[in-house]
């Protein structure tokens, strides 16, 4: 049985127990998020390319907080859900998760550190594949500071300030965004001056970024921004022992006071 059929079966079974299952549906040659409610709809079930479904769950729960729902989650989406739940963006009590493991090719495309879900999952689809190291981030770590500057200047200079990175990010849910504040990111200046937009975004995703790469995959300028975020994630792991998206109970360090003896 291939992955799509297995997923179709899993969603079909879950439909008996919940009011709807959030998954992807094929539509005019693309996929789009869809709330499946009837088994008959399952012919249209889609798999890829991936799309951040937790953001769709958040939208639906805003309107229907009591609804019993299912959701299909890849590894990155599960990590995203965990961080969103900690910040009260989704409520997991009424949610059943169908885990979908990514193929080796998909994991490669995303340089994914954990291409399968394992924490919130009630049903598994697909075979686990190996994590893929982030080579772009590792190369960057080896460079001298001046080399990094020329690397990022040439990358960030390509930015057309379309905000696709922010809009695609499941962790970017603030109703007001600092990236639209005239004081920090002036309107009408493209590319945004350095250092502003990109480093502010790195700061604001620190401790939240789960390395799903939605931002990078949506960027029309192909800026490998998640390499910067990956390095920050590693550093924060060392500084605060915190890894986003791993554990529902771990509290994000930036919202807590320091543990100090006074």
């Amino acid at each position: 049985m291939n992955r799509l059929e297995a997923l179709r079966n899993a969603v079909g079974e879950l439909l008996d127990k919940v009011e709807g299952v959030i998954a992807l549906r094929n539509k005019s040659g693309h996929v789009a998020p869809h709330l499946f409610r009837e088994r008959e709809e399952l012919n249209g079930l889609g798999l890829s390319p991936k799309y951040p479904l937790p953001a769709t769950l958040r939208l639906i729960q805003n309107e229907y907080p009591e609804a019993k729902l299912g959701i299909v989650c890849r590894g990155c989406e599960e990590r995203g859900l965990i961080e969103m739940a900690k910040r009260n963006q989704v409520e997991l009590g009424n949610v059943t998760v169908i885990g979908l493991a990514c193929t080796a090719d998909e994991a490669e495309e995303c340089r994914c550190a954990k291409p399968y879900p394992s924490v919130l999952v009630d049903a598994h689809v697909g075979e686990r594949t190996e994590p893929v190291p982030d080579r772009v981030a590792e190369e960057l770590r080896q460079k001298e500071v001046a080399e990094r500057l020329s690397f990022w200047r040439s990358q960030f200079d390509k930015c057309i300030k379309c905000y696709a990175c922010r809009n695609a990010c499941p962790q970017c849910f603030c109703p007001e965004c600092t990236l639209e504040e005239e004081l920090w990111v002036e309107r009408g200046r493209v590319p945004p001056p350095f250092p502003s937009f990109h480093l502010i975004r790195a700061m604001h995703t620190a401790g939240k970024c789960v390395g799903c790469r939605e931002c990078e995959l949506s960027c029309p300028a192909h800026i490998p921004m998640t390499a910067l975020y990956a390095l920050i994630r590693q550093e924060m792991g060392e500084m605060f022992g915190y890894e986003p998206g791993v554990d529902l109970e771990d509290q994000p360090p930036l919202v807590l006071p320091m543990e100090v003896e006074i």
């Binding site: 770590r141 500071v145 200047r153 480093l199 700061m203 620190a206 320091m258």
Partner: peptide, 16 residues
């Protein structure tokens, strides 16, 4: 105390 060390790393990795 938490923000500054993170920003220092962001600066370092972006070339400042």
């Amino acid at each position: 105390a938490k923000r500054v060390p993170i920003l220092q790393r962001i600066l370092e990795f972006s070339g400042i």
